[in-house]
Simulated assay, not measured.
Amino acid sequence: MSYTEDMTSSDSLLDHVDARTNLAGTNKMEILLFSLGGEEKFGINVFKVKEVSQAGKITRTPNMPGGVDGIVSLRGHVMPVLNLAKFMGVKETAPHQTMMVAEYNTHILGFLVKDVDRIIRVDWDKVRPTEGMLSDKGALITAITNLDDGSLVSILDVEQILSDAFGEAIVGNVEKVEAGHELCVFFADDSMVARRKITEVLDKMGVKHIQANNGQEAWERLRGMADGAQSSGQDLRDQIQVILTDAEMPVMDGYVLTQNIKNDKRFEGIPVVMHSSLSSDANRAMGKRVGVDYYVPKFDSQVLSSTLRPLLT
């Protein structure tokens, strides 16, 4: 991890958007480091964060979910404010007032933290998933990585935190796909919440599915399927009609996965749909740069199903 940037002002998050767009296909990400008051360092993908500011006056409202301190108005946006220390079980010695303003699934919200440190650039293959590992923070941590000094950074699973705070998105009525043969979607996502909701949508559509937990696992399985189809003289498109991938995943991200797929002629004619909570124009541009055919923000079951339906023939 050779790149660091001091977090001296909120403007620094926006100064290098074009440079961060150039990360597409490099299997690198930028993480904003922050503290919740203890010794542990936490991180969140910079692309999720619009700015860092003081929280200002937080207004309590009735029936606020646990861990949500209230709402705040910032430059015309009224947003919920989540207290990350409460979610992570970290005791606050004083009320936290630093707020990371994040855009998630086209919604704006604030995360209260003790302080923000700096931005680091890391290789995704140095980021390790936490599934199957013991953690006192449970499913709220999606991955870990090491700093140059050997200390650990815990990367938040924002999808799980928002699910715990506000409940999972409801998958409503989804129309079945009518086809004269079996249809299959291959999807990759490191979030348990996302995999569960994607599975629910595909089941309601009546579509078979194969899943992987990160881009590396997905690529190994896809390449194995392509090898098998090639050796048997079959058309891979008869086995997989669509590949659906998350953007940020440990080991290999969705941009490199897409790049690998598009560089392998055996996958020609199989569309790649990127399904990501990173909903900014910059992320769409990153997807387009590596060959993503369609970009769908998480998580709207109707948008997802309507995007997939014409591709399933």
Rank of each mutant, 00 (worst) to 15 (best):
L13M: 07
S10P: 15
S232Y: 03
G37L: 04
S10K: 14
M274C: 10
V90I: 15
L162K: 05
G56E: 05
A188D: 13
I243H: 03
F299L: 13
F34T: 04
T8N: 12
H209S: 15
S154T: 02
E131S: 11
S280V: 00
F299R: 09
P310R: 01
V127N: 04
Y255D: 06
T4M: 15
V290S: 01
A102C: 10
F47C: 06
V81A: 02
P80K: 00
R195N: 14
R237T: 05
G167C: 07
G215N: 13
Q97T: 14
D300Q: 11
I261A: 09
F42K: 01
A247R: 03
A282H: 02
S279M: 01
I119V: 15
I119A: 02
A229I: 12
V256K: 11
G110V: 00
R118V: 04
G167V: 07
P271L: 07
S135K: 05
I270T: 04
G67K: 03
Y3M: 12
S280A: 04
V174F: 01
R223F: 14
R309G: 00
P65H: 05
S35E: 10
N213M: 15
P250Y: 11
G228E: 15
I240V: 12
T93R: 14
T245N: 06
Q54T: 07
F186N: 05
M225N: 01
A24F: 00
T98Y: 09
N173K: 09
N283Q: 01
R237M: 09
R20H: 01
E39A: 13
F34G: 08
K48W: 02
Q230C: 08
D190P: 08
M225F: 04
V127Q: 05
L112F: 00
D264V: 11
F166D: 04
S135L: 09
L257K: 09
Q241V: 07
L156Q: 04
D235A: 08
S53P: 02
V177F: 01
G37P: 06
T59N: 11
M7I: 14
L147Q: 10
R266Y: 04
V90W: 12
R128E: 15
V90C: 06
